[in-house]
Design a protein around this nucleic acid. Sequence first.
DNA 1: CGCGCGATTGAAGCGACTCAACGGCAGTGG
DNA 2: CCACTGCCGTTGAGTCGCTTCAATCGCGCG
Lengths: 274, 274
Amino acid sequence: MTEPTSTSLTTSRGRVLDFPVARGSLADLLRLLGCEGDASRTGSSLPLAVRRIKTDEWLYHQGVPAESIYFVRHGTFKVVRTTEDGYEQVLGFAGPAQLLGFDALGARNHPTAAVALDEASVFVVALRDLAGPGVAQRTLADAVCRAGSMALSRQADIADIMSAVGAEVRLARFLLHLSKQMEARGESPRRFVLRMSRRDIASYLAVAIETISRMFSVLAGWGLITVSNRDVEIVDMTGLQELALSTRRPIEPFTRALAGRRGSNPMPGREVAA
Amino acid sequence: MTEPTSTSLTTSRGRVLDFPVARGSLADLLRLLGCEGDASRTGSSLPLAVRRIKTDEWLYHQGVPAESIYFVRHGTFKVVRTTEDGYEQVLGFAGPAQLLGFDALGARNHPTAAVALDEASVFVVALRDLAGPGVAQRTLADAVCRAGSMALSRQADIADIMSAVGAEVRLARFLLHLSKQMEARGESPRRFVLRMSRRDIASYLAVAIETISRMFSVLAGWGLITVSNRDVEIVDMTGLQELALSTRRPIEPFTRALAGRRGSNPMPGREVAA
DNA sequence: CGCGCGATTGAAGCGACTCAACGGCAGTGG
DNA sequence: CCACTGCCGTTGAGTCGCTTCAATCGCGCG
């Protein structure tokens, strides 16, 4: 899909890092963002690295440790998230004055990747410049930024969920998403009660409400879950995860490891008492 | 859908604002977020308001000025965005330790609304507590937060786009989205060139790549746009906006103003040379 | 020129939406 | 107490739209 040219270029210099090609200032960034008034008062002469990106070059890769976030100076970027099976989901496009890599603040690594669609340049904001010492408000603002970053990542999940064509897969991903949240909260990831109505789930997954009902029955019929009204129990966790992996056909031809499993029935051998 | 009980409760006290019911501290919030180590060093005794929310009560409404953001302490919230025609799109669900209202940092008003699905309580963080005076890093962090907030809002747009059932509507919304961005950038909102491939658009809108091609032809056949490869010109802007408003049937029965327009053809009277 | 790739268009099948009916359950008023 | 009403959830049948497979065209490039 993408030539490793950019990677080799950077790795020739050591690591895949941000190397400034030009110099900018905080005032430049503020001017780009449209807040001219603020440029005067603060120490806006603070230097800011500028990095130029060529077409099809990656600004940052998915999964790598995040050391910076970026403001697009000019050009267009594509934000993508590649699943394990090689399917790449486009999460959005970013133009000038937009922020890239913000979703990495909450985690250690970049949950997404950004690639330039044309000649582009960005302001590089090192994360250590953001984590300066301060008082209580500083800590609070940090928490806000990190939580906001995680909220952004969470929003990306809905694109992840909706990218699935099949409604069963959407529901499976939704349930696994809830399961993970329950686990992170210290509660049982296998048995929980849905706080939202079918109507809400339908709106969230962008399918009809009757389809939600049907898919609950289908998943229960496959022995993956048991459901009674809003009480859900995940019986076959691995089976559910397996089902959730089913996306549309992977774009890349070299991900044919799961070529045969994509039959008309996304859950082969599971039709118990159909 | 929702009883105005909560609203009347608050309006009886003056305005619809956050009134603290209990008191918490920054240390409590940090403990909730799981960063116990940080709780010791900073002035973590900073008081923080706690607000309790009853089931089906709104934490904040869509479109109202934002004065606070919130960390969920316990309970579950539903984040929704209601379109002009009364259709409510669920954007996500928020549980403990998650941030709500962050998308209002970039704008003046809340672009979304949050309603409690059960008994809940939140930490209230006033925005003026975040905008404290500081040096350059302070300004920078502010810019980061605001841009991140806008990125979150932008992510909500993709749910907006995908909530449309019809592929033509999705493409129409996508084009209008691009148009607005171009306009905000000072360029022509009617004539622009797509920087991304059909494959990227297809992934973004979660439809097949052939469907994208077809819908471009359909929109062009309706006289709404002209398209040549990646050059797009919006011919009938109002018609395109009109088409973009077509969602699935509004949930609420009292939004029947547009009852008749929802025929089998979403663009009535436009079938030129079908 | 042939090759690959992106984009467009056609034909056929299946999946989700829509309409409709039904069974539970809570709230309400006789 | 029970009928009544409304809402939520489930299930069935039919239609429409999108996906899939396929062929074609235009374009850049080795």
